[in-house]
Nucleic acid binder design. Structure first.
Lengths: 136, 136
DNA sequence: TGTACTGTAATAAAAATAATTACAGAATGA
DNA sequence: TCATTCTGTAATTATTTTTATTACAGTACA
């Protein structure tokens, strides 16, 4: 997973929340985040797929929150963007001839998912509304 | 931070634990992990700096655990290898002209360190001994 | 029907990771 | 003593991942 997807998504959501329902273009979002608009649109595609935002095509189009900020949980947002695990990829290829190498991936996986669940549980204590309130 | 530093370090520590005090060469470790020996030596450098392992130079040299596996806490290991934060780098450069962009990094930082602490707390529930016992 | 958007693919550039090569220095033991 | 086998470390190259850019079809609006 790209290491900046979560921050970018949260930034987008925060801006959309500021907009209070108004439609915001990817160009504008990209300007605030200071990244490429295409990347913003890709991230929005994902946020839309997960029901956090909606988009409107055509002139005057753009995106807006699909639900109330207090119904958008940061743990859910995290889950929507994380591809692989946080602690390291399990796509390493340890030597199968080594007794440790042979089975380490499965143990790492369970260690990771456990730890990641703790992280998600922590993020889940906050909603977008909580986060956005810090910008007042 | 390299995303594979934690798994590599844990792999090294697990192998050293298996060796029960015997000195293990970086060549051997690299063979089991299936990565370059120089990378192993770099990781060992870090583990040594944090007091987890010791090394012996010269012929017949190598590394071994500096303390009992039950005194090596996985949360500590994680902390020793993590460079930046797990959830994303804060070295993005949001647009300072945007009210959200201007202050988002500080809010992300506190969100991250909070969440990461939860992750570390989870990892800290296990020692190397606990982890290694799974390979029996 | 022109304009301003999104959606999406394809490509290129940049950055981050990992591998490789190289070699000095340390410990061992014949 | 000196060849051997390690570590420590720097420098370079290769690979992979991430991000930016370019391009253009499709949609909605005025």
């Amino acid at each position: 997973m790209s290491n900046s997807r979560f921050p970018v998504s949260l930034h987008i959501l925060t801006l959309l929340n500021e907009a209070k329902g108004a439609v915001v273009s990817s160009e504008y979002l990209a300007g605030s985040i200071n990244i490429n608009p295409v990347l913003v649109r890709k991230e929005i595609m994902n946020l839309r797929k997960h029901g956090f935002v909606e988009s409107k095509e055509g002139k005057g189009g753009g995106s807006f929150l699909a639900k109330s900020a207090s119904d958008i949980n940061l743990g859910e947002v995290y889950k929507s963007v994380r591809g692989s695990n946080v602690l390291g990829q399990s796509k390493n290829e340890p030597n199968p001839k080594c007794p440790v190498g042979r089975q380490i991936n499965q143990h790492l996986d369970s260690l990771y998912s456990d730890a990641e669940n703790a992280l998600i549980a922590n993020l889940s204590k906050q909603t977008l509304a909580d986060f956005a309130s810090k910008f007042e």
